[in-house]
Design a protein around this nucleic acid. Structure first.
Lengths: 244, 244
DNA sequence: TTTCCCAAAATTGTATCCAATTTTTGCTGG
DNA sequence: CCAGCAAAAATTGGATACAATTTTGGGAAA
């Protein structure tokens, strides 16, 4: 998709990195000037980002950078657990292919390698993040339910909702690195349990494990809460796109 | 939202109604001519519909009307059950407000009214569809999880995925109307059970009930399968937007 | 006859221009 | 001094013009 989607990606990163303040109005002309393009592709990008939920309609005209509270982040991670849980159950019920199981085992082996390594530095963390993404992708990719896959794809675009969003980010300081090995060790055990349950076609167990696995990620995010840029307080009544 | 969103709505209806054949390429100029507007708003609309999953990118340029198999429809309904199930569980765990319970009871009372009415004609069916939408909306609206609400909103845009998509449509012929009363009676019982479980804060039970309630809707869709326009056969290898 | 290449046509993507609506600002009146 | 209204400025949405890329079709050569 070599359309004007690079603009969308750039804007998404700018929003996630905190370059745009939540609640700020995103006028087309300044954005276009900043990106060095005309208003036309910016207009398309803003509409798409609003469709993704990163921007909120500002009254009758234009868009606002949406506010995300800390609860919103935790909630989206729980939704990820819900979706991945069903995906895992579907895979278990259908019986995972050998190729899938091999992928998962390879991820586990790599996880073991990382955990047994000498230092758990930023590089090791990035490697873990990549492995973690492959593990989760291997499950959702074979669930054979397009609606479910797309629901997860959309959810993953919300800030810090995707699997491995914390790992590999710059949010883990030295003080969190101390606990990091325990955290990843626990995740590794969960990956092991998920893989075994998949092989044994224990659908309900996989579903519960994936949900709990996400809840664990939510707790880890909570540890880094203070470093997350641009999270709003829960009690501010600013517009964040109303419910249904 | 008085933006160019009416064009998006119109196109969505044209796709759902089968005016566009799946796999057909949607060129901007013909679409713009058909709607009587210029290419600019059409481009925005096509990009948004692709974001919603109703269109698939056609190689490096333009979009195709996406193919939906019958399984895709059933799958999206099951995803709806998953999401609504979690929403119901959250409402139950937090304790539903009196206002919510009153709304649900009002829906149930209206359902009883419809079922006890003399004829179950198309008008009664449309009334049921409206009541049903309100029932489901009352639950999801109070779940207090924005990611979940938006996941449902997106899923509801897929063909026949939304609650009450079959009821109120033209797909129920005379032969299905015979079974219609039994079908709705069963749904009414499920609404009753959901409401009671919510009041009693039985989260797990609500979740299971909502899932099963959706599965029932899937079975009803299956009865009308032959009348659904533009569903593709499951074994055609045409592009339908690849998985993750 | 088939295949490959080049040219032409069509279509998408971008930039600019115009109209319409909204928002802001300043002035006037109470 | 505040409120209300009017005018002006700014910003968004739509249409058109232009550039670039892709696709298609035809012709020539093997």
């Amino acid at each position: 998709m070599a359309r004007g989607d690079d603009i969308v990606v750039t804007l998404r990163e700018l929003i996630a990195s905190g370059a745009f303040v939540p609640g700020q109005r995103l006028a087309e002309i300044p954005v276009a000037a900043r990106l060095g393009v005309s208003r036309t592709p910016v207009r398309r990008a803003l509409a798409l980002l609003a469709g993704e939920g990163l921007l909120a309609p500002a009254g009758a005209r234009g868009y606002l950078v949406r506010r995300f509270t800390f609860k919103d982040i935790i909630d989206s991670i729980e939704v990820r657990g819900l979706i991945e849980g069903m995906a895992g159950r579907l895979v278990a019920e259908a019986g995972p292919s050998d190729a899938t199981l091999q992928k998962l085992e390879a991820c586990i082996a790599e996880g073991e390698e990382i955990l047994n390594g000498p230092a758990l530095d930023a590089q090791a963390d990035a490697r873990w993040a990549d492995m973690n993404r492959r593990f989760h992708a291997a499950i959702i990719a074979t669930c054979n339910n397009k609606a479910l896959i797309e629901a997860l794809e959309r959810n993953d675009k919300l800030p810090f909702a995707a699997a491995g969003a914390l790992a590999g980010s710059e949010l883990i300081g030295a003080e969190l690195m101390d606990q990091r090995r325990d955290v990843l060790r626990h995740a590794q055990v969960q990956h092991r349990a998920v893989t075994d349950a998949l092989r044994e076609r224990k659908g309900a167990r996989v579903e519960a494990l994936m949900r709990e696995h996400a809840m664990q990620a939510a707790r880890n995010i909570a540890l880094a809460r203070r470093k997350i840029p641009n999270i709003s307080e829960p009690d501010d009544a600013h517009p964040t796109k109303g419910a249904a």
